[in-house]
Amino acid sequence: MSQHSPSNLEADLATHLGRSRSVAVSGFADRVVLAVHAYRRRQIIRWSSFATSMAACLVATLVYLSGPSEESLIQQTQSLVRSDEASQLNALLGMADDLSMLTPVMDNNSLVVDVIEKNEI
């Protein structure tokens, strides 16, 4: 291998590196624009997803902080229904009580039956 002068090293290095100083890539600008569009889309999706989550949290907080919740309303309704059922049952039972009071009278034999039974007719 031929030997070069040390002073040539600088020049050879400059020549060697200078060859790759500028590397033009065809269509590179289009690729960059496409990548930027994709980045913008990702950002929009990310922000809309974040905004939706925040809105959901806000609504949940407002519902929690404001008045009776749906669950408590359901409980109140159920208790009202239960009390209504109880009153209906009580009414029925009361009627039964009335019937039971009447029962001895109703169970007594009629006068005709007694006479027949006594005379063994």
Binding site: V23, A24, V25, A29, V32
Partner: peptide, 17 residues
């Protein structure tokens, strides 16, 4: 986007090099 294209065309060869 057109300005971005021009900017990339001006600077990408040296940057890639």
């Amino acid at each position: 986007d057109h300005a971005l294209r021009l900017l990339v065309d001006r600077h990408h060869p040296r940057l890639v090099g």
